[in-house]
Design a protein around this nucleic acid. Structure first.
Length: 221
DNA sequence: AAAAAGCACAACCGCCTATAT
DNA sequence: TATATAGGCGGTTGTGCTTTT
């Protein structure tokens, strides 16, 4: 049995949002907030003939305050390119490092413009090519993290990055052998959200310093 | 001026994950 | 522990605008 659809597609409006619908959604969310109730029931409560997912997307990508559209700066180009090289197409993580940008915006920008710029070498390569990450391990037990504080500043592609907490964990493989995984919460300067995925995903079997060095970071004392 | 092609971006689709029951 | 459900995400498509022929 497949998953039940999130809404009755025959009875919801699709396609571009009208200014009236935008205003209805904006007014409702200003009054009730985005966490009151849930997105699925929101359209009915707000009086919209839309799928809840569509409302969520419209709010997050267009109506939310402080959203920036278009006009990406060269600095933003570099950030996107750098993070794309490191993380791949993890647009939500990349967008979280750019104030006011949405994952959809960054994704569209990459697919329509930035990718071509890179092919035409209009974006300077910021560092030697990154090594291929090892394949992700398969876990058979829960990880136990042991936080290790580190206060070293690290430089990468022109960014100063401070790993606020490194952790090493013991993991048992399917074949019974054990190994360790290093991860770090990386805080981008002037950003509220940490990039926890940067090292955790690829860090299997290496120390934190080995990882950082391997990915083009150089330590600054 | 009209048609075709290209482009930008909003929106949808379906899968995966987290969480509640 | 299993199942159902909502949220979140990345890939893809649709649509309208602009540029080219």
């Amino acid at each position: 049995m497949g998953r039940a659809p999130c809404c009755d597609k025959a009875n919801v409006k699709r396609g571009p949002w009208s200014p009236e619908e935008d205003e209805t959604l904006r007014t409702y969310l200003h009054k009730h907030g985005t966490i009151a109730g849930n997105w699925i029931s929101l359209p009915h409560k707000a009086g919209l003939k839309r799928c809840g997912k569509s409302c969520r997307l419209r709010w997050l990508n267009y109506l939310r305050p402080n959203i920036k559209h278009g006009g990406f700066t060269p600095e933003e180009d570099n950030i996107i390119y750098t993070l794309y090289q490191t993380l791949g197409s993890r647009w939500s993580v990349i967008a979280s490092q750019l104030h006011g940008r949405t994952d959809n915006d960054v994704k569209n920008y990459w697919n329509t413009k930035l990718k071509k710029k890179v092919l035409l070498h209009q974006i300077p390569s910021p560092s030697p090519p990154l090594p291929s990450p090892p394949p992700p391990p398969t876990f058979t037990s829960n990880m136990k993290a042991e936080p290790v504080e580190t206060d070293s500043l690290i430089h990468c592609y022109g960014f100063s990055v401070a790993p606020t907490m490194a952790s090493s964990s013991s993991v048992t493989m399917e074949n019974g052998s054990s190994n360790s995984i290093s991860s770090s919460l990386v805080h981008w300067p002037n950003e509220e959200e940490d990039v926890a995925v940067l090292l955790a995903e690829f860090g299997f079997g290496s120390s934190l310093n080995d990882l950082l060095t391997g990915y083009g970071f150089s330590q600054v004392n």
